[in-house]
Simulated assay, not measured.
Amino acid sequence: MHRGKGMKFVGDSRVPAERKPNIPKDYSEYPGKTEAFWPNFLLREWMVGAVFLIGFLVLTVAHPAPLESIADPTETSYIPLPDWYFLFLYQLLKYEFASGPYTVVGAVIIPGIAFGALLLAPWLDSGKERRPYKRPIGSGLMLLGIVSVIFLTWESVDQHDWEAAAQQGQIEEDMDIDESAEGYEIYQTQDACIGCHGGDMSGGAAGPNIFESDYDTDEVIDIIQNGQGEMPADQFEGSDEELETLAAYIANDGQAPENGDGGGEGNENSEENAEGNEEDPEENTEENEEE
């Protein structure tokens, strides 16, 4: 270019003599390689999104969320399990070098180093090669991260007691108990019992549901007086009559003995009466024959 050709001097700056409008190139210049954003591109994206949305809705209907019982802050035996994408971190905290006094190592330091290395991978290996074996640093870090996550997740799933987890979160139907019965009023005065079994007798921090086991009145009295397992003895505060009333109420599954068909003394008496009635006809017939 000759000096000054096609240029105009305006003070100390030089600008082109002819300005061309900034018009994007037409699609016809790239046949088969480009397409219009509207409606071609958006229509295809919407169709793919609709297919995935319908599939997701079908999965939610076919496999509903595994709901558990209402959270109880007094339940100390419950073992929570994180979602599947956090199981590798959950498993990491089970090892000795990352738990107990070293919890900070397993919860902060090791995950921080791992995720920090992945974030720094583009700067640690800034080559222009696209083949993985030509970029050993970035490929090695990514492969190490994938293998570690898969291994820890598998170990967490394999070591978890799924049967115990299903039982501890199982939803139980509320039992309809007679709160107007004398046995219920006596139970409400026993702070030691309420502290373990809860105010509604459905179980608490240290004791199970009172009505889970099928005991008769005498067995309930024996357990209250002498204890059972981790349950201490001599925790009842009251008279012997109140103890018998409470035991009959528990044996009758939360109903007053005169209102239900529980396993208390009422059942034993009814069974004895039934046996007596069965024997009476035989005795009567024998007496008639002798006469």
Rank of each mutant, 00 (worst) to 15 (best):
Met1Leu: 02
His2Gln: 15
Lys5Pro: 11
Lys5Tyr: 13
Asp12Ile: 06
Glu18Arg: 14
Glu18Pro: 11
Ser28Thr: 00
Glu45Tyr: 03
Glu45Leu: 12
Gly49Ile: 05
Gly49Ser: 02
Gly49Trp: 02
Ala50His: 06
Ala50Ser: 00
Phe56Trp: 13
Ile70Asp: 14
Ile70Glu: 15
Ile70Ser: 14
Ser77Ala: 08
Phe88Cys: 05
Gln91Ala: 09
Val104Asp: 14
Ala107Cys: 13
Leu118Ala: 05
Leu118Gln: 05
Pro122Ile: 09
Pro122Lys: 04
Trp123Ser: 11
Lys128Tyr: 02
Leu144Gln: 05
Ile146Phe: 11
Val147Glu: 01
Ile150Gln: 03
Trp154Asp: 01
Glu155Leu: 11
Gln159Asp: 13
Asp161Glu: 09
Ala166Gln: 08
Gly169Pro: 13
Ile171Cys: 08
Asp174Glu: 12
Ile177Ala: 07
Thr189Ser: 15
Asp191Leu: 12
Pro208Ser: 00
Pro208Met: 04
Asp214Thr: 14
Tyr215Met: 07
Thr217Ala: 01
Gln225Lys: 12
Gly227Met: 02
Gly229Val: 07
Asp240Phe: 09
Glu241Asn: 13
Leu246Ala: 07
Ala247Val: 05
Ala248Gln: 05
Gly254Ile: 10
Asn259Gln: 10
Gly260Leu: 03
Gly263Gln: 13
Asn269Ala: 14
Glu275Ala: 12
Glu278Ser: 09
Glu279Gln: 06
